[in-house]
């Protein structure tokens, strides 16, 4: 159906300000290469990851979403990464029920020192998504979430995270 060789996945990556965002930064400063497919969005903590962000990313054209946070026990807001873990499990089950491959959403722990690990994880996730093929959810024919009128009953609040 699709040519996975030429398919260039779009991946949204949610990073935690205290760990994985710094890991990505470290990968950058130490010139560790990783695929360009991931667009990173910085949150203050993986606990800020509202599943709405994931649905919105997928609905608007992302092929996969990577959620990253501090290792268990290392969250700067005590236990919020466990909350992210539980959300992630329930989110995957829900996606499965919708017929969407749950593997399109991945959870990765990466400390600020793990630039290499971060780069490797991005690399392998891109390949996993490439193997799954494009998701193709976005519709430009007036049926995309942004074009088809409000899905909730009030103007959508800005979903963008305020930079730290």
């Amino acid at each position: 159906m699709n040519n996975n060789e030429t398919f260039d996945p779009v991946i949204i990556g949610f990073t935690c300000n205290w760990c994985s965002y710094r890991a990505a930064d470290l990968a950058g400063t130490s010139r560790t290469k990783y695929p360009h497919n991931i667009r990173l969005i910085r949150l203050m903590c993986s606990g800020r990851l509202d599943p709405t962000f994931v649905f919105k990313a997928l609905a608007n054209g992302a092929d996969g979403v990577m959620i990253t946070g501090c290792h268990p026990g290392e969250c700067h807001y005590l236990e919020q990464n466990y909350k992210a873990l539980r959300r992630f499990h329930l989110l995957r089950r829900t996606l499965k029920g919708l017929g969407v491959e749950p593997e399109r959403v991945k959870l990765v722990w990466a400390s600020a020192a793990e630039g290499k690990k971060f780069a490797t994880e991005v690399g392998s996730f891109v390949e996993e998504i490439r193997a799954l093929g494009p998701l193709n959810w976005y519709r430009s024919n007036g049926r995309s979430p942004d074009d088809s009128g409000p899905t909730s009953h009030e103007p959508a609040p800005d979903l963008k995270e305020v930079p730290a």
Partner: peptide, 14 residues
Amino acid sequence: GVIDYGARLISAFA
């Protein structure tokens, strides 16, 4: 204020 009903419940139940 809820944009996606299911997403809100996933958060709440988790």
